[in-house]
Amino acid sequence: MTDAAEAGTDVAGVIDALGFADEMAQLRTRIADWVARCDPEMREALAWQFASGAKYFRPLTIFACHRAVIPGPIPATVMTAALVVEFFHNVSLIIDDIVDRSPTRRGRATLHTRFGELTALMASGYIVADGYVQLGGDLQAIALFSELLKRLGVAECMQWRLRRQMLGVEDWRRIAGEDTGSMFEICACLGDRSLRLRRFGGLLGLLYHGCDDVGDVRGAAALGGGGEEDVRDGILTLPASLAIRDPAIGAIFCKPDPTDDDLATLARAFAAQLPEAEAYLDRIEEEARAEARLFAVDPQPLLALVSQTRQLSRR
């Protein structure tokens, strides 16, 4: 099964589990309509970027957080927020792929590989600008998306500055909390609008980030990424933060130009930490569940979301 096909199966499973099939169909239609109306100069690149294979975890988080607080159909403002969060998520993917020099994502060429860096960078700016247009007069959403963009920018710089350093699990938690954590935090706020589920969203993002790290070490293709770039670039993942407690592993991890043997040693050391990493993720999962039970009117959609996210490291 190809990466994209496997990811597609996962998407269907998650959507079914959460019961948002109609909303997701609407979202896909809106994305397709938006691409069709884009400037012809950009259209091909944007169609490539938004082609199927996405997991739509972030829109699902918005829908689930809304449903956890307010019953009934998903209103138009929440649907638009879900559309724009998928826009902004794609912007972060485009930038990540350029920075990581990733040739493929979800089994297809990355945008900069296919169309060049200039087009990829300009497309990301185009997406952000049109995202704000989509939000219209929704001032709360505008403020939340602005917070998101700023935090993602800071997190990316922080993650890059702190690479190849002997840091700990708490440092990983801080970086992941600002990176993926901020994205899901904002999703939660966009969904429930009372900010009551902000902390839940942060924990869900942390869980997602950790599962992604562990899944990469397991060689999981379901999450759409490989872990090779992170190992090569000395990025502090959850298994890495546990493994580099060993000074010998830490010394290799901090090397500016690791050899292939070094990378193989690191990969083995990271794999050896998987049980402890899984145990750590179990604790984050429990924290997220406790938040859902405490602050949601109906925690069931959130608990389902946590369960689905937690499974991502086990594939």
Binding site: G168, V169, E170, R173, I244, R245, D246, P247
Partner: peptide, 17 residues
């Protein structure tokens, strides 16, 4: 043991958080 020291530092930081 430096490894134990690092694990302890993580534990204490987690405690404070």
């Amino acid at each position: 043991d430096p490894s134990a020291q690092r694990a302890l530092a993580d534990d204490l930081r987690a405690y404070l958080r």
